[in-house]
Amino acid sequence: MKKHSFGSLLFIGLVLLVMYLPIAVVIVYSFNANTARIPIDFTGWTTDWYAKLFEGRSGFGDALLLSVRVALWAVVISCVIGTLGAIGMARRVDGKSSRLDTAMESLMSLPIMIPEIILGLAFMVVFNAMGIRGNDLRLVLAHVTFCIPYVFLNVKSRLVGMDPALFDAARDLGASPARVVRDITLPLCRPAIMSGAFLALAMSLDDFVISFFVYGAGEGTLPIKIYSSVKVGVSPQVNALCTLIMGVVFIAVALSRYLSSMRAARQRRLERQIRAA
């Protein structure tokens, strides 16, 4: 049934080629031995830039630590707030969401809809007005705000597919609302919370625009540090760093796709067994 013309394969191949061209260039240049200020000519292979990256003075280590610290705080806080919010909103009166809930849901998902630069400016002026000076705190507050929607939407879509009778049954058997959430809702939502947390983690580590405006003086998070290093010219150390980052992303994406395909296969097998029984 499926036939692929040569043309369509060529088109897919060409687009992918263009997509990977700049990535390949960064990887190749990360091994370039040229030490000129703007090292464009390829003069030989070296791994020096990788070694330099791990020296204390480069500042990339501190930037990475800051990025990871902020991301972890942002993920934990946004998971708690977003998950509880999604569970709370799932409880509906007469099967309809209240107008307040609908309005709040739109408000809460605004941060991932509007251009990031607006949010960056908003956080900057509000934090200044509130007298919040600490960079860590400023970054965490900003990141939590744009991480909540990812967790919330994931958990909510999981809850929508669930049978409310499960919770009613537990309530009828005498469980308190808190116990229902702890023993039934949360365990059932765990995969959704995990994937929401993963998304939030990636978004937080990846964020440049908002962090750039929220961050005060200093070296900044990893994306900020990368930006300031490449803004003026070409930095072989950044090439090495970017190569490492892309390697990590590739492994993480491949792994998560592999794991989810395994889970889907297991699910299918289970369903077949249940049907057979």
Partner: peptide, 14 residues
């Protein structure tokens, strides 16, 4: 999933 900054930087070199 790779930061747009990194990918754009590749074009800068190119």
């Amino acid at each position: 999933w790779t930061n747009a900054l990194i990918r754009i930087y590749g074009w800068r070199i190119l």
